[in-house]
Design a protein around this nucleic acid. Structure first.
Length: 708
DNA sequence: ATAGGGTTAG
């Protein structure tokens, strides 16, 4: 079998000595020495020792260049015919992310050896581990057509590819193959099936399979715990966790990690911290993944001290090299309002991935430092490192959302337009941010345009988007469209009801002229229904809406009763709503009653003081009116100017009492002036709510806070 | 040669 042309003069014992040296040199990973030796053994064919040597070389190869050099040598020697070497080469390329090179190794492999499963499994694994699930399944199909039967290594990979594709039909077909090929009791295959049904949200099927298993491993148990976590079922996770202990499988660090993750995903943050404490006190070794979960919880709880402690654990555990652990730290510092620390960590990282960038961008955006967030975003856009990184939907949404909620409405919309041009698809989070901007700017037409986009992208089933639409429509003055969206939502949540009730409150006075009675009834019904039928306890804002709704309709006694009987202490919004209604209906008695109750409140109630003062003034009680104003002044309460927006040709213009006329709005002001004159000429005496003249001339009148 | 855990946008 040995055909070393240029060393054929050596005796067989000399040869084996030579190989022994060869192996030991390779064992010390000295590539250059090995190349020297290699020059003496060209044209070797299949030989166990040489193959083994190349195999060691590949196992320890330090980078892609190194790997390619070895590949060349394998080609020269003709050893590429060894399925074993080809499979190793393939997996090394895959490890370095060079799937195309791995594929090439597979493609040039001689046809006569194509039945070798080692090779098939290696190429399928390369594809699955890099997200090429379709390609993996195509390979599987090819195998079957060639009559190569999948084994206990192939099936787990194929099952995983189906699960990650999320195609229920494909999953069922592959499950059938598993059964037909007799792998229904194969531990690895069944473990993978458990994970597959978990990912499909079919926990009942997963449980059934799990219960029928004759032999289970840690992986079986842990897969079940993580499947419950994946499906946001911390109860289920806890149950199987407990059962595990009873069946002589002491939960290990991976089990604990999944348990922590299941509770974090359910928003049970305190429990996560408790479980983490238990995990440590029981002497279970921590994992980088568990620390990442705990760090995310520290962020949610805004617990920088705990976060710093976990930072210590990350260092102690030697997890600094783990990108995701560093990213979790950045995120934690960001959420704890210590963006500087987050940035410092980010700069210290020698390799960064997109998650890290996004974590820092959102840290800045969330703390209101939108310009810094945008600056980073621009850096990311320009970055030309390897691997290539471009902003994804999360990066875009982070800056768009940051501007949206920090007074940068214009920038937010501009970025959204640019994002669409870039070809990054907006998702529900992006859309909800942009809708909130439309609501803020009262940009109804733009809002409708987004609604169109939502329908085309079939995102109208998303609760986040639906709620955003309701909010946008009602705030833009189109109660009707808002109501339509509300009715169409399946599984309305707290926010849906909130937005709709707010909508009723905001539009009550508009609709009162035509359908007063019907509207009140509907508002009351909604309010009752949310608690009775949906089990949602009314919060402060719901009470504020009801008080506003009833008050505007003149049902002041009923509104006042709600305030008296509500289970929590009324806030400024509630008092303002009640007082404003009293003013509208010129009801001094309830106003006084209300005033008595709020006189001792020292909160930011400027609006309420002004309302009260105006109520007194309207009924000619000037002394009381003045007294209230003076008391407000001595308390140092500042007035917030009233503001309003209109949208003209897709541009939004802002009015603010006392501010100069904005460019482009001269015509609008002229028309308003004319209208005011016309009103006067027709003997209409404007009140504080509707007269521009008075709003502009008397800043105090614009303090009539519209309870919203 | 196979398996289980994680971080970022509202």
């Amino acid at each position: 079998m040995l055909q070393f042309l240029n060393i054929s003069h050596l005796s067989s014992s000399a040869l084996s000595r030579n190989f022994f040296c060869f192996r030991s040199v390779l064992g010390r990973h000295s590539f250059f020495k090995s190349r020297y030796i290699h020059s003496h053994i060209t044209y070797a064919t299949d030989n166990e020792v040489v193959v083994d040597s190349f195999d060691r070389l590949l196992l320890h190869c330090s980078g892609t260049q190194h790997c390619k050099q070895i590949h060349t040598h394998i080609l020269i020697t003709g050893l590429y015919r060894s399925a074993f070497l080809a499979a190793r080469l393939l997996s090394v390329y895959s490890r370095f992310g060079l799937v195309m090179d791995a594929q090439k190794v597979f493609d040039i492999y001689p046809l006569e050896g194509i039945g070798n499963l080692l090779l098939w499994n290696a190429i399928v694994r390369a594809n699955v581990s890099h997200g090429f699930y379709k390609e993996a399944l195509e390979l599987y199909d090819k195998m079957r057509k060639l009559g190569v039967w999948a084994d206990g290594f192939t099936f787990p990979l194929i099952v995983r590819a189906c699960a990650l594709l999320g195609d229920l039909n494909l999953c069922k077909i592959v499950h059938c193959h598993v059964l037909r090929m007799g792998f229904q009791n194969h531990l690895h295959v069944v473990n993978e099936l458990l994970g597959m049904y978990g990912k499909l949200g079919q926990m009942k099927v997963a449980c059934k399979l799990f219960d029928r298993m004759a032999v289970r491993s840690y992986v079986s148990w842990n897969t079940m715990v993580s499947a419950y976590a994946f499906n946001y079922d911390c109860e289920g996770a806890r149950k199987i966790f407990q059962r595990m202990g009873l069946e002589r499988f002491e939960p290990n660090s991976v089990t604990w990690t999944s348990l922590l993750s299941s509770h974090a995903r359910c928003g049970k943050h305190e429990e996560v911290m408790e479980f983490f404490g238990m995990m440590r006190s029981r002497g279970v070794g921590t994992t980088a993944e568990a620390l990442a979960v705990v760090l995310s919880v520290c962020g949610y709880l805004v617990a920088p001290n705990k976060g710093k402690m976990i930072h210590g654990y990350v260092m102690k555990g030697g997890f600094e090299a783990y990108l995701f652990a560093k990213n979790a730290l950045i995120c934690m510092y960001g959420k704890c309002r210590e963006v500087e620390d987050a940035h410092k960590l980010f700069l210290e990282m020698e390799t960064k991935n997109l998650v890290g960038w996004n974590a820092l961008i959102s840290s800045y955006a969330e703390s209101g430092q939108c310009d810094e967030a945008f600056e980073l975003f621009t850096q990311l856009e320009k970055s030309d490192g390897y691997p290539v990184m471009t902003p994804n939907v999360i990066s875009w949404s982070a800056v768009i959302g940051g501007f949206a909620s920090n007074g940068g409405e214009e920038e937010s919309l501009k970025l959204f337009r640019r994002m669409q041009l870039t070809g990054v698809m907006a998702n529900s989070v992006t859309i909800s941010s942009v809708l909130s901007v439309c609501a803020e700017l009262a940009a109804l037409n733009l809002g409708r345009e987004i609604h169109g986009h939502v329908l085309r992208a079939m995102m109208d089933g998303n609760i986040l988007v639906g709620n955003g639409l309701i909010n946008m429509y009602t705030k833009c003055g189109s109660f009707k469209e808002g109501h339509l969206v509300f009715e169409a939502i399946d599984g309305k949540d707290l926010i849906s009801w909130n937005s709709m009730i707010t909508g009723y409150g905001m539009h009550g006075h508009v609709l009162s002229a035509c359908s007063h009675a019907g509207l009140i009834t509907e508002g009351r019904n909604l309010f009752d229904k949310m608690n009775r039928d949906y089990g949602i306890e009314p919060q402060m804002e719901h009470y504020a809406c009801m008080v506003d709704l009833l008050g505007r309709a003149g049902l002041l006694q009923e509104a006042s009763n709600i305030v008296k009987n509500m289970p929590m202490k009324p806030n400024a919004c509630i008092w303002s709503a009640l007082l404003n209604s009293c003013r509208m209906h010129k009801n001094t008695s309830i106003a006084e009653e209300t005033a008595a109750q709020i006189s001792h409140l020292n909160s930011e109630m400027t609006g309420s003081y002004m309302l009260l003062s105006n109520i007194y003034a309207a009924s000619g009680r000037w002394e009381e009116s003045a007294r209230v104003r003076i008391s407000a002044k001595t308390k140092g309460l500042k007035k917030i100017p009233g503001q309003s927006w209109i949208e003209v040709k897709k541009k939004v213009y802002m009015f603010s009492s006392g501010s100069p006329v904005q460019a482009g709005l001269e015509l609008v002001y002229r028309i308003l002036q004319e209208l005011a004159l016309q009103m006067e000429s027709e003997d209409y005496i404007p009140d504080g709510d509707s007269s521009l003249e008075q709003n502009v001339n008397d800043g105090e009148m614009s303090m009539l806070v519209e309870a919203q």
